[in-house]
Design a binder for these strands. Structure first.
Lengths: 159, 159
DNA sequence: GTTTATGCAAACTGTTTGCATTGCT
DNA sequence: AGCAATGCAAACAGTTTGCATAAAC
């Protein structure tokens, strides 16, 4: 979904409103937490961060809000295979902050990397064009992840 | 995990045995179903296919078997964001059968594509090398997925 | 004032686990 | 024989939903 909106100081509200949603305290709080986060947060992580400030906001609303934000493209939802979904603010591919993931299958650690991002994004863009045409598919986003063992898991492994 | 094994007609048994697991009817059945499947199956899909032939094999075993197979690298586990994990036989990157995914966020359809695979794999390999070195990470596998709307979902969308 | 969002508790779903039994080697 | 694998039922975790209330517009 795209839903037009003006940018600006509180363009989040604009974006929500433009998509037909109301701007509420809870939704704002979720966006605040996500924009201050430097890692991928689970719904419960977000709840924990919001709760001290807005004790009235329940986990259910967090889930409902995240659902909306993912739908309108403001937030990306990830699954690193640890049973719970993780969320982060959407960034334009190629823009500052765009990254891919390195997931440790040992301890679950997730490293964001930006190395090779430009090349990757360039190839992805080309691939996207080809695929869109061939399969008549409108591509909205992509996901690149590498799986393996991180430094510490590698060392602690008995072989 | 790597676990040495001889190839050959029933190298699956060898692989299992080599990793210290026993070769059982259930495990064989799971591997059979996976190798005959032309799409990504969920644990329950696999159960459904096995049940008519081996009514004695329960869903629990399927899960346990899949866990093992994923661990020893014979099977890849995917999450396309539809609540259930999906499994497919592992293929060597660059080998015949290696593909990436196009996931429709509308209807959940997953298209395997092999277009651009060579280029993608080449770049991934280079990226892997760089990342391995920089983060001292042992990379075992990668995941590339594109999300968007498929042909039919695109057309049925009212905008 | 009307409509949408929320909280709470209960429901749901996919997956995991405990334990007694079975089956591989 | 000995130990690993299995089935069953129950437990579990994250997420979703029904419904009455509260808040946004």
């Amino acid at each position: 979904m795209d839903c037009s909106s003006r940018k600006g100081k509180s363009w989040r509200h604009g974006k929500l409103r433009g998509c037909g949603y109301r701007a509420t305290v809870g939704r704002d709080a979720v966006l605040d937490v996500l924009s201050q986060a430097d890692e991928h947060l689970s719904a419960e992580d977000i709840y924990m961060k919001i709760h001290p400030i807005h004790p009235g906001i329940g986990l259910t609303s967090i889930y409902r809000t995240l659902g909306i934000l993912v739908n309108i493209g403001m937030v990306h939802k990830f699954d690193f295979g640890h049973g719970r979904a993780r969320y982060e603010l959407a960034e334009h591919p190629g823009g500052r902050g765009h990254h891919h993931h390195l997931v440790c299958t040992g301890c679950g650690r997730v490293i964001d990397y930006t190395d090779f991002i430009d090349e990757e994004v360039a190839l992805l863009k080309k691939t996207e064009e080809g695929l869109s045409k061939k399969y008549n598919f409108r591509i909205d986003s992509h996901l690149i992840q590498f799986y393996g063992l991180c430094d510490s898991c590698n060392n602690s492994k008995v072989s």
